[in-house]
Nucleic acid binder design. Structure first.
Lengths: 220, 220
DNA sequence: CTAGAGTCTAGAACAACGTTCTAGAGCCGG
DNA sequence: CCGGCTCTAGAACGTTGTTCTAGACTCTAG
């Protein structure tokens, strides 16, 4: 009814092939990586697993389930320092850079973040982030606001960047640039600053992150 | 091939019903508002317009076109102060609050921002934002980084909030909360701060925005 | 050893979808 | 009157998510 995370998973068979669900999720991620979100079909997913298409519905109730699981799966790639360093800012930066990198590695995630992010991997990363901010001396309501602000910034940055890169055809990116440049009188600032030009996106992201971290009402 | 914005629109007939395309977009937004992104079907959209389903393909090449147009449409609702005030910060805040409000008014937009945002309404708002930041004394590369940071923050915040509210069933939100609360040992900080609790989302957003604006390397 | 209750697989089938093809109606200038 | 343009829409195709159903396999209970 409401999402994978709130429903108990199928109890595995006595000696049935374990990790079946894990295999489904892994294959889904692989398929999404190669074909994009439109290329993920229950039939093709089953085919890749050497199974009948309708068999999937034993392990998973929905296609939405598959998408939810695949999305949370890639956040598991974000390494979580086992023992946080003394510097909260380094910890937060490391986490958020990894978060962004994971989303850019799987650009289809940009199209899926519109669904509730309450999977275990997302929650664990959020927990880590919030605990780092607490070590910075933040207290409510700033603690929650800062956590949300940082997470939302990362998500927004990853979404806009990978959606822009979804114009895979580099010549269509060029067309978009010319389209913009042709309207200098309408968008003088954007044209002047080369708004759609390729730039050092990593640097741009780091700068924005620095602004946000600088603005937090931390201890010192 | 690449998106609505880079293709010339159909030249209108000599005296044919004008604004046909506008009517399509308006009906699409209305349908999306009522039924969500899964409820928008070319057939139902046509039905609502009193037309045959396949007629739409004369005015629009794709369903993707409709979605791109509908998405840009709602950004047109964000009022742009004709003559910006003297205070850049007020201008930026007003714009970004309106931006967020528009997305929350049309929650389906959260699922669609994964596509390139290069429609005229988005570009005009971005131009306004960037010109305000320039008046704050920002220069490259900070000017671009700040523009992106603010836009990405708004998008991320709207995406996560409306995707959370997409769990329309309030009792399933409650279930998610209990699911979290039951794992206090795993997510101690999140549980303590009531991470999934309803709070004053507007205040949280404003706080985050203030952090970011405070952190910008402006003139003064 | 047999019966039966799980666990798991998968074929058949359905309604709905996006989209193409095609034929044609209505209108216009020449 | 003709030929070309704008615009409409029916028929049809392939594909999709999903349900229903029947059956195979495995283990436990009696």
């Amino acid at each position: 009814m409401t999402g994978v995370w709130l429903r108990p998973p199928r109890s595995p068979g006595r000696s049935g092939p374990p990790l079946r669900r894990d295999r489904i999720v892994a294959a889904a991620v692989e398929l999404l990586d190669r074909e994009g979100v439109a290329g993920l079909t229950m039939r093709r997913l089953a085919e890749r697993l050497g199974a009948g298409s309708t068999t999937l519905y034993w392990h998973v109730t929905n296609k939405d389930d598959v998408l939810d699981l695949a999305l949370d799966q890639i956040f598991g790639e974000v390494v979580l320092p086992a023992s946080p360093s003394g510097d909260w800012r380094t910890d937060a930066e490391t986490l958020l850079l990894g978060w962004r990198a994971a989303m850019l590695r799987h650009p289809w995630s940009a199209a899926l973040v519109g669904r509730p992010l309450i999977g275990p991997n997302v929650l664990a990363r959020t927990e880590f982030l919030q605990s780092a901010l607490r070590r910075a001396g933040l207290v409510e309501p700033d603690l929650t606001a800062a956590t949300h602000a940082l997470a939302n910034y990362v998500i927004g940055a990853a979404v806009t960047l990978s959606s822009w890169q979804r114009l895979d055809d580099p010549e269509s990116r060029q067309a978009a640039r010319q389209h913009l440049a042709a309207q200098r009188e309408r968008y003088p600032t954007l044209v002047e600053t080369g708004h759609l030009d390729d730039r050092d996106e990593d640097d741009t992201f780091r700068r924005g992150l620095a602004y946000l971290l600088d603005g937090l009402p931390t201890d010192r």
